[in-house]
């Protein structure tokens, strides 16, 4: 078994007066893809935001053996965690080139890495000098993931990457994310599209009303329709 990369223990997060996460527990291993599944409002996005320090949590989050609760978002990012929020987190006034330069932080992006990223997402080459606000939904999603990849990351948190995308773009995205895991980057994925999640993830955590209700291998839940129906309320043919 590969080394544990992320462990979340008894995570509680409040947004205003609302107790959103009421005890989330899961772990994931280095080099793998883990999916956070659950119905709308289960607390999946809040879990990602809590890991990034954007929604300050109580409880324990250990990344690579280090407790990261209480660190600033910037410090958490610098530990090697990239975040692709559902809203994509792009800067509409910046071009594709500027966005990637920004994401590279202090140093100029490595040319070979830029070539690798644009081989994952060829559309970005074409719109290199276009403002990100002018890209299509699929191109924005690609740029959002590319942004998280400019610097080598150990873990990227991806929130609903397929939302609103055409099936052909989703297929491109699956291929790109699969390539990514081969570069030893782990992915924590929040996804409503079960097919998409099942095609990528090996580990799965199911959330319900801000609590972990099940954790196990994706194969188990993908094969067991009764379990899937019980946990997620979905039937996938």
């Amino acid at each position: 078994m590969t080394q544990e990369l992320l462990r979340v223990d008894d995570l509680h997060t409040f947004i205003g007066d609302y107790h959103i996460l009421q005890g989330v527990n899961f772990d994931m291993h280095e080099g793998g893809v883990a999916a956070l599944l659950g119905r709308n409002g289960a607390g999946k996005t809040t879990t990602l935001r809590s890991i990034m320090g954007l929604a300050p949590p109580r409880g324990r989050i250990r990344f690579d053996g280090r407790d990261i609760v209480g660190l600033s978002t910037a410090a958490i990012s610098r530990l090697g965690i990239g975040y692709v929020p559902e809203t994509l987190g792009l800067f509409s006034g910046l071009t594709v080139a500027e966005t990637l330069r920004l994401a590279a932080r202090s140093r100029a992006p490595d040319r070979a890495r830029i070539d690798w990223i644009t081989s994952l997402f060829p559309a970005l080459r074409k719109f290199w000098h276009s403002r990100s606000g002018n890209l299509s939904g699929g191109q924005k999603q690609m740029l959002a993931i590319a942004k998280a990849l400019v610097e080598p990351k150990r873990l990227i948190l991806v929130d609903e990457p397929t939302k609103g995308l055409a099936p052909s773009v989703v297929a491109e995205l699956i291929a790109a994310l699969k390539q990514l895991t081969q570069q030893s980057t782990s992915i924590l994925l929040v996804e409503q599209n079960f097919h998409f999640a099942a095609s990528l993830a090996t580990e799965t955590t199911v959330l319900e009303s801000g609590q972990t209700t099940w954790q196990g291998m994706m194969g188990d839940i993908a094969r067991d329709e009764a379990l899937r129906r019980q946990l997620l309320g979905v039937s996938v043919v």
Binding site: M52, L54, S72, T73, A74, S77, R78, Y83, P85, G89, L90, F91, S92, G93, L94, E98, R101, L102, A103, R105, S106, K147, E151
Partner: peptide, 24 residues
């Protein structure tokens, strides 16, 4: 400069800039 690009990013969305690792 790269510094100026970070400023623009902060203006657009400070949380996003911090999620990229910038001490805003």
């Amino acid at each position: 400069s790269p510094f100026g690009r970070v400023l623009q990013a902060i203006r657009e969305n400070e949380f996003r800039a911090s999620a990229l690792g910038y001490p805003t």
